[in-house]
Design a protein around this nucleic acid. Structure first.
Lengths: 199, 199
DNA sequence: AAGCATGTAAACAGATCGGTTTACTTCGCC
DNA sequence: GGCGAAGTAAACCGATCTGTTTACATGCTT
């Protein structure tokens, strides 16, 4: 139906606007009025589609998840390069996004930080997002034929999240350079049969 | 003067209470009323010592910095163990703190996330804290006689911050285990003269 | 042209925000 | 014993918060 399509379009537009505002201003610090002002959307329409602010935040977090998968992970996966190259490419691509917008870290992490211990549903989005990223890295480590893909994948995820966080705090993507070097070293170390067999 | 001492004591008590509230509730989401209720402190006294909420937050962040240095870094440094052991001990000690209080990550990072782009002074605390930690790791890498202490120290810091963040998001300290393994691998890799000269 | 869904604009309500003020208590000191 | 510093308790202020309501414009369908 045409009506549904228009409604869904409006919904997406609201989420889009809210996405930018929450990303830059934080969830608690950004009121719904701030989301609406200069957006051409009326409050009534907002509350028609999202009965509470939390519902809107949830939709924004879902949008962010799709956004990051579509912009970061899927393109790299579609490149059909070597698994190791793909891991490096993910770090490069995320660094490029940070360089473009230095204050925008991970929105899921932001939500987790703001809602942990007080809104389980919203905090869970951050956890889910981090676990998804970890799984993608573990998959790539398996395909790369590493000796301990699960362990190294987790380590790479720690580096990824740490670099993302520090980039936001520092205001530039330089931590991704360090992280990438560390990833290279870890990948190389796990190629050999018994890497830590000395005490 | 006795009056000053009592005043300073009160000030510390206020900061202590605010520390717990902000740590668990976030800076924006926790009102000053929430800090005061059930604390036996009156609003007037609070605003006598801290003219604005931001001043209070600043004091809390300074307190957090001293707290973490005194509880984490200084004891490890005083142990006089091998530099490598000290690096590992820092990860162990931070993990122990997380296991005790899983939802409490790094307060400086929390502040940076909430105030980046909207309150430079407060956001700078997170940056300063992260740089301090990085410097401690670089120092230890130098004392360990690594080939590239600055680079490896930065990498270890990325692992540290990533593990801290993921621990908070996951709700347990397991990422520190992965991070520690990665640190061990990185330290070992940088021991050899030409680490990427695989034969 | 009538009807209806969809939208904007804006006043409004109750709660809570950061912050001020008034009034009263308590404690140490000369 | 009185006085002032330092404290609590609580009413109060204007602004802002989430969310509701009223009123009006617009455009599609039949």
């Amino acid at each position: 139906m045409a009506g549904d399509v228009r409604g869904e379009d409006k919904k997406r537009e609201i989420v889009r606007q809210a996405f930018d505002r929450f990303y830059d201003g934080g969830f608690h610090a950004t009121g719904v009025d701030a989301v609406l002002s200069e957006s051409g959307i009326s409050k009534r329409t907002l509350y028609k589609y999202f009965p509470t602010k939390d519902d809107l935040i949830e939709a924004v977090l879902e949008f962010y998840g799709q956004f990051i998968v579509g912009k970061l992970f899927d393109p790299v996966a579609a490149s059909n390069e070597e698994p190791r190259q793909q891991i490096m490419a993910i770090f490069d691509a995320r660094k490029a996004m940070i360089d473009e917008n230095p204050t925008r870290g991970c929105l899921g992490i932001k939500a987790a930080q703001e809602f942990v211990g007080k809104h389980a549903g919203l905090a869970a989005h951050g956890k889910h997002a981090a676990l998804y990223v970890e799984r993608r890295f573990v998959d790539l480590c398996e395909r790369a034929g590493l000796a301990r893909p699960a362990e190294v994948g987790k380590q790479i995820n720690v580096l990824f999240q740490g670099a993302l966080l520090l980039s936001q705090v520092y205001g530039d993507g330089s931590p991704f350079v360090s992280a990438k070097h560390a990833v290279a070293a870890l990948l190389e170390a796990d190629d050999e049969p018994t890497p830590s067999d000395r005490q």
